[in-house]
Design a protein around this nucleic acid. Structure first.
Length: 862
DNA sequence: GCAAGGTC
């Protein structure tokens, strides 16, 4: 039987390249989760059928099991020993199913994942999905390629190897360590600080072994700035007039920090009055052309020269790449592969209106061999692939494309050469100099003009000449602090310390912006916020390891032992986690030290917010904190009560009305929008629902579990089954909801457009408009068990005979009332089923059995 | 709600 070979790459573009090379572009392509390219060709000496497909990065990512997902019930320190599981990274893409289907009937598997540790790890993810036996070295092969070129692909096919399990395990180790450390610290910090300060506006206060050192770099610079003490200095600048030039000479001492001494030197020069030429030297200097463009350098230039953040740059680059204008934009390599087709790339640019002439010259004459650069074995440097114009790309993409073209042409240009002439002088025992520069070969600077050397002409001097000094200036200056860290400097620091990868550096920077730890200022400089500063200073005083870049190198070093087979995977994970667990428990013990910084930076809850609602325990007013998450704070009891995160809260209508269960003053909440519900709410019950068995809470997810209440999820009065309180669903409920198992409740502040709404779904029913008052009574309809309501009509518009205004009745069975009510949302309104009032447990099943029996008894047909 | 790493 002919072998059937499944080959899997890390991304669709590489699967396409491999298939094109191995099939000689004679393949058929099927769509699927990812494309599958099929063809016949030789494999290990026999004719074989090939299928080439790909994953889209990692198939799986790690997470905690459900039992550890709940912030309120899981102690973060338990996370270090918690089990972890692998979940499909993107379940909607069905990559696992795709691989399993494609592997059916295949005799061999060839793994073409990127040749780095992550790729090695994905190899085993793929093996798992395909159902091959990981140990079957006669059927599973690893293709090792250093670039996606025909030469390297063919070479890899002829030297198939085995996947490296140790390298894959090292990635497993990193994943587990990053997850456990990051999540444990993040949950602890967030829970500790969130809600503690009035003006600390943070949804989550995250920690991570990459993002935190990244923030650390920004705060370090900020601290340098604040600690900086300016010093006065003086510079001596004699001037001479010579052959028509006025020249300002530079002092060999550059500057002095002593005013008197500087003045003394100045007097000596003035006394001497003559500059003597002691030496004239000339040197040929050169400025090297760039090597190939990699991602990190692209990010740096884009940030510092184009003003684009890394996130935007990568988005633009991705678009240019998918549209075929540039090569793959995520690469570490600055060296072109030996097989790189420079002529082809230049040819693509010859018709470009901006770069065409420059490219054409290289083709007709010749071009320089690019500098060696470094080869990371991933992708070639970023180059243009196709000509584009500003009109077709749009402004930002064009700027980036333009730079990529300029850089590419720069790499093929000669170095910039220039003559540097230095003239040295002496006067009054002091040495001075002036320097001239003249370009002899512009080289790459003619296509990258911003890198050109600044030219300066000097007249010719002869040694021994004496020239009169025209004036002497003593310039005073102040040393100045550095500026905030620029994004481009930050990228360099991250690269230097191994924080993040070419693909993730932009993510970490974006992270610390989104978490409100830093703000991007003009010129893309990163100014840390009070929150960012307090965090880093907090780590520095508790355990500075936590925010130093070494924390990443430590992890990298440890997992490298696994990758090299020098240490056992689980031993290393255990060892590293144990160290972090100790650091974590020390951090928890010392959190007061960080809190002291927060106290200095942020105002305590008791100083902010307006007074709202009396606490049922101490009977004092609580404070309303409007910043997210919205909450009430009792300064006396030091308790926080969350309230619904949407809508507004007022005390007005329910002033002095208190909850019979706990004595807390009721609030009136109004959800936003013209159809938003209004309802009373007890701050205490909302946070600590007093009745068991209520499993539908306001704001809770539909599948929510009532034992796991989050912030903003709880029991407003319309869900409360209290039997005598006038605000409970027992008192305010009118009838069963026609749409769901909820109860229609009277909206207490809906006048003059009186209405009922369902306490569980969106169902809305409008009542007679313009009534003075509508209220529920304690009576029930004998026919349908709904609550009898009482309407006090307006004298002028009353529908009652003789101008009477008071009317009691059932909204379903009373003819007059029913003619005045209208269904706003929902399909039908049956009078069947027992009314809501009887549902002592808040969620009755009254309607369930009769629901389908008489569809005609709908609201409209009534 | 949480990390970092792939890639889209």
């Amino acid at each position: 039987m002919a072998p059937k070979v499944l080959m899997v790459a890390e991304k669709p573009s590489i699967a396409l390249s491999i298939a094109s090379v191995l099939s000689g572009a004679q393949m058929s392509t099927q769509r699927g989760s990812t494309e599958v390219h099929e063809f016949d060709a030789m494999f290990l000496g026999s004719r074989a059928h090939y299928k080439v497909t790909s994953v889209i990065g990692h198939v799986f990512s790690v997470d905690f099991p459900a039992a550890f997902q709940d912030w309120t019930t899981t102690n973060p320190s338990d996370l270090f020993q918690a089990p972890i599981l692998k979940k499909e990274t993107n379940p909607k893409a069905h990559i696992c199913r795709h691989l399993s289907q494609e592997a059916r009937g295949c005799t061999h598997l060839v793994l073409w994942l990127d040749c780095d540790r992550e790729g090695e790890n994905i190899c085993f993810e793929v093996i798992e999905c395909t159902g091959f036996h990981a140990s079957d070295s006669r059927r599973i092969y690893r293709a090792r390629f250093s670039s996606v070129t025909e030469k390297d692909i063919l070479k890899a096919m002829n030297s198939l190897a085995e996947p490296n399990r140790d390298e894959a395990l090292s990635v497993d180790a990193r994943q587990e360590i990053d997850l456990k450390v990051g999540v444990a610290f993040t949950r602890f910090q967030t829970s500790y600080f969130n809600g503690k300060y009035g003006n600390l506006d943070a949804r989550v206060i995250s920690y991570g072994p990459c993002q935190t050192p990244t923030l650390g770099f920004c705060v370090d610079r900020y601290l340098q700035i604040t600690m900086f003490k300016p010093e006065k200095f003086w510079m001596l600048h004699p001037y001479i007039m010579y052959k028509g030039y006025e020249l300002k000479l530079e002092w060999e001492r550059s500057r002095l920090f002593d005013a008197d001494v500087s003045a003394m030197f100045r007097n000596r020069i003035i006394e001497d009055g003559i500059m003597k030429v002691v030496r004239v030297s000339e040197k040929l200097e050169s400025k090297a052309r760039p090597s190939g463009l990699n991602t990190v350098n692209l990010l740096k230039v884009a940030s510092s020269a184009l003003g684009f953040g890394p996130q935007l740059t990568m988005q633009l680059a991705e678009r240019l790449y998918t549209q075929g204008f540039i090569s793959y934009p995520r690469t570490e390599s600055t060296a072109y592969p030996s097989s790189f087709d420079f002529k082809g790339t230049l040819g693509a640019l010859v018709h470009n209106p901006v770069f065409g002439a420059y490219a054409q010259k290289f083709l007709t004459e010749s071009y320089n061999k690019p500098r060696a650069g470094t080869d990371a074995g991933d992708h070639p440097p970023i180059t243009p692939m196709r000509s584009a114009s500003e009109d077709s790309l749009g402004n930002d993409a064009w700027k980036l494309y333009q730079y990529i073209c300029q850089h590419f042409l720069g790499t093929l240009s000669p170095d910039c050469k220039y003559r540097r002439i230095k003239v040295e002088f002496e006067s009054g025992g002091e040495q001075f100099q002036c320097v001239g520069q003249l370009a002899t070969v512009k080289g790459f600077t003619s296509i990258m003009p911003w890198l050109a050397i600044s030219e300066k002409n000097l007249p010719e001097f002869a040694v021994g000449e004496k020239i009169e000094i025209s004036k002497v200036e003593l310039d005073e200056g102040n040393t100045s602090p550095p500026d905030y860290l620029s994004e481009s400097e930050l990228i360099s620091l991250m690269e230097k310390h191994g924080i993040g990868t070419d693909a993730s550096i932009s993510v970490h920077i974006n992270n610390i912006c989104e978490r409100n730890y830093v703000q991007v200022q003009a010129g893309r400089r990163l100014a840390p916020t009070p929150l960012g500063i307090s965090l880093i200073r907090g780590y520095q005083c508790i355990d500075s390891d936590l925010c130093l870049p070494d924390i990443r190198s430590f992890i990298e070093h440890q997992i490298t032992l696994v990758a090299k087979g020098q240490a056992d995977h689980s031993m290393v994970v255990q060892h590293v986690l144990e160290q972090f667990r100790r650091k974590f428990s020390y951090f928890v013990k010392q959190i007061d030290n960080m809190d002291a910084l927060f106290e200095a930076q942020f105002s305590p809850l008791s100083d902010s917010g307006r007074l709202l609602s009396k606490c049922g325990k101490c009977l004092r007013y609580m404070k309303y904190i409007s910043t997210q998450p919205a909450r009430l704070y009792c300064g006396t009891c030091e308790e926080v009560y969350y309230i619904p995160q949407k809508g507004t809260v007022k005390a007005s209508l329910y002033k002095e009305l208190t909850c019979p269960l706990d004595n807390f003053e009721l609030l009136l909440c109004s959800m936003p929008g013209p159809e938003g519900k209004s309802f009373p709410l007890c701050p205490y019950c909302f946070n600590c629902p007093p009745f068991e068995g209520i499993d539908t809470f306001f704001g809770a997810p539909k599948t929510g579990d009532s034992t796991k209440l989050g912030k903003g999820v709880g029991m407003p009065c319309f869900l409360c089954p209290h039997t005598t309180c006038p605000h409970s669903v027992i008192a305010q409920g009118v009838c069963a909801c026609p749409e769901c198992s909820g109860t229609l409740v009277l909206d207490p502040v809906s006048a003059p457009k009186w209405r009922l709404y369902c306490n569980m779904c969106n169902c809305l029913v409008s009542l007679p408009e313009g009534a003075h008052r509508i209220s529920t009574t304690q009576d029930k309809c004998p026919e349908c068990d709904s609550t009898i309501i009482e309407v006090d009509f307006n004298k002028k518009t009353t529908p009652l005979k003789d101008g009477a205004t008071l009317h009691k009745g059932c909204i379903l069975c009373d003819e007059l009332l029913h003619s005045l009510v209208e269904m706003k949302h929902g399909r039908s309104f049956s009078r069947h089923g027992r009314r809501g009032r009887g549902r002592g447990r808040g969620r009755g099943r009254g309607r369930g059995s009769t629901k389908q029996q008489d569809p005609k008894m709908s609201f409209r047909d009534f």
